Amino acid sequence: MITRRWVRGVVGGAVAAGLLAGAAGCETPPAPKAAPGPTAAPKKTPTSTPSAPASPAAPEPAPEPCPEGGVRLVEGSGDAVMGLRLEGYRLVNCGTDEYVLEGYPQVRLLDKQDQLLEVAIGHGSAPITSEVPAVDAPPERVTLAPGQTASMALLWRDRITDVTVPPVEGWVLEVTPKPGAPRLGLRLTRPVDLGNTGQLGVGPWKR
């Protein structure tokens, strides 16, 4: 009697253990965790490139002082036809008072070494050429307020009449605007190339 109960108990325990083992064997294993994806590299904060220090602005050149007498001589425009030269020059009132002109300026020419040239200087176009309005106009009274400008013209011919005589070139123009006024000097960018004619015509002051 006792033996049967033990066998039954053993069989029942074995069956129970088998069921538990089957249940344990039939359990679905958990899905494996997904592998981590590629990690994006951290964004670099752009570093600002230090800019070069700004160069200081070049100082503006100091204005040229007004010459004694209150006027300045300036080279103007020119014209050349078949060796005939017509060059204009301007007189600027850079002072603070009115400046009155009348008649013709007194003119001298110097060479590159600032030596005075021997030139026959006359009023008008004769005997250099026929009438030229800029040189042959009648003189008039010209009053320049501060900042205003008057002009005068020079006429000459670049011609070689004697190959044994060196040609003459004036590189400095000296002008006395009116009697008693200080003489003004102007170094030229275009010479007064007289050849060896030795003649220069001067026109009157014009507004």
Rank of each mutant, 00 (worst) to 15 (best):
residue 201 G to W: 01
residue 184 L to T: 02
residue 169 E to G: 07
residue 183 R to L: 09
residue 115 Q to Y: 00
residue 181 A to V: 03
residue 82 M to F: 12
residue 151 S to I: 03
residue 142 V to D: 04
residue 3 T to D: 15
residue 134 A to Y: 02
residue 76 G to S: 10
residue 206 K to T: 12
residue 200 L to T: 00
residue 179 P to Y: 01
residue 13 G to L: 15
residue 193 D to L: 12
residue 39 T to M: 02
residue 124 G to F: 03
residue 107 V to Y: 05
residue 158 D to T: 12
residue 124 G to S: 09
residue 23 A to R: 13
residue 27 E to T: 14
residue 173 L to V: 01
residue 139 P to H: 00
residue 144 L to F: 10
residue 204 P to D: 03
residue 119 V to T: 11
residue 134 A to F: 00
residue 170 G to A: 09
residue 77 S to Q: 10
residue 155 L to R: 06
residue 73 L to T: 06
residue 194 L to R: 14
residue 91 L to G: 04
residue 137 A to C: 03
residue 85 R to C: 07
residue 14 A to S: 11
residue 57 A to S: 15
residue 52 A to I: 10
residue 140 E to F: 00
residue 75 E to R: 08
residue 57 A to H: 04
residue 192 V to F: 13
residue 128 I to Y: 03
residue 121 I to V: 15
residue 42 P to D: 09
residue 12 G to Y: 04
residue 62 A to E: 15
residue 84 L to I: 12
residue 184 L to K: 06
residue 40 A to Y: 04
residue 161 T to I: 12
residue 119 V to G: 03
residue 126 A to I: 07
residue 45 T to S: 09
residue 172 V to K: 05
residue 34 A to H: 05
residue 73 L to G: 03
residue 30 P to T: 06
residue 97 D to H: 10
residue 43 K to A: 14
residue 203 G to H: 01
residue 75 E to C: 11
residue 187 R to E: 11
residue 194 L to N: 09
residue 42 P to S: 10
residue 195 G to M: 04
residue 150 A to M: 02
residue 115 Q to R: 13
residue 128 I to P: 00
residue 88 G to M: 03
residue 184 L to M: 08
residue 50 P to C: 05
residue 137 A to Y: 01
residue 190 R to H: 06
residue 61 P to S: 00
residue 148 Q to S: 13
residue 188 L to A: 08
residue 169 E to D: 08
residue 139 P to T: 08
residue 39 T to I: 04
residue 19 L to K: 04
residue 26 C to Y: 11
residue 75 E to Q: 15
residue 178 K to C: 00
residue 75 E to G: 13
residue 40 A to F: 00
residue 33 K to H: 06
residue 156 W to I: 04
residue 147 G to F: 06
residue 1 M to V: 05
residue 134 A to N: 10
residue 146 P to I: 14
residue 52 A to E: 10
residue 184 L to I: 02
